[in-house]
Design a protein around this nucleic acid. Structure first.
Lengths: 163, 163
DNA sequence: TTGCAAATGTTATAATGTTGCAAATTCTTC
DNA sequence: GAAGAATTTGCAACATTATAACATTTGCAA
């Protein structure tokens, strides 16, 4: 059992990844989308790291795997995974994280710890509502909402307290 | 008077730019920060465009100006302007816009029209509050909040209606 | 089994951003 | 005003992130 780089609540991360992959397979089957070996492997790699993973990080691992991969290989897989809501791109980091609410169409809100690098995805109805109201007040029709919050996670706050 | 690429409310854009520059000068003076000619020119260029401007777009204009500029020239100016709250970087576009609330420390919320490319900066207290509450509920200490909303601005919605 | 669409391989290149060091400029202090 | 410190700029090279274009292969269906 791997226990490093956990998000806020401790958990068995291998099981967590396995679950995510199983969910992804189910979602893709239901949609007649092909979760090919490369795509699945990329998803696995992203899930194994709770920290956002860059496209070239993924590429490096694929190369270690013996996979003869080039940037488009990775970006295509990532596009696919994004389209099906299986991963999110964190724009402020140029990196990707596994989606913890796979399948549902949603725009997560991301808490990004600047110290340990972990990212927590949240769905905050109040935030979504406030954003939607603010946009409406300007006559703006929102389609894609991106909320990324950098700061300190609980663990790192505690650590920083007794530096 | 230039009237193209206006944000949601019509205005005299030249005056708008001039005001932004005057404000910037005042802010920098007050802080003993040096708004050098290059920095000021970059700020001006960004303000002249209501659409976000990429670093290399800025660079191209500086080059036209006869300024012997390289990428670091632009990025350094942009860093300076960001640090003093005079411009914002829009992460989802890798581009920069003039800050409409210069001087005040704040995290704007950006409405980005996917059709015309204009960006409106908003301060929405309800959104800020909801975000802060959601983060607190997770024990997370927010430092930098980034909210970027892509969608359709009022003008483009109207246009799209009778396509 | 042929034909089509989707997915992948491959090469090259575009777009964005950074590092490191030297030269010039501005500010400070005497 | 001159010496020295600090900031800003010039400049070259390079690093990182992402895409374009086209050929090839694979999976699936008629």
């Amino acid at each position: 059992m791997s226990t490093s780089a956990l998000p806020y609540r401790p958990h068995n991360h291998d099981a967590c990844v396995a679950q995510a992959l199983a969910d992804a397979r189910a979602i893709c089957q239901q949609r007649n989308a092909r979760l090919t070996p490369t795509r699945e492997r990329v998803l696995e790699l992203i899930w194994q790291s709770h920290k956002p993973l860059g496209a070239y990080d993924v590429l490096a691992v694929l190369t270690e795997d013996g996979h003869n991969a080039a940037p488009p290989t990775v970006y295509r897989a990532l596009d696919f995974l994004q389209q099906h809501g299986l991963v999110h791109r964190i724009a402020s980091l140029n990196a990707f994280v596994g989606c913890t609410h796979a399948g549902k169409h949603h725009n997560g809100m991301f808490l990004i710890c600047r110290s340990c690098g972990n990212v927590l995805e949240l769905t905050a109805p109040n935030v979504a509502k406030a954003v939607s109201e603010a946009a409406s007040a300007e006559g703006f029709q929102p389609e894609d909402v991106m909320i990324e919050i950098a700061g300190l996670c609980p663990a790192c706050r505690a650590g920083a307290a007794h530096d």
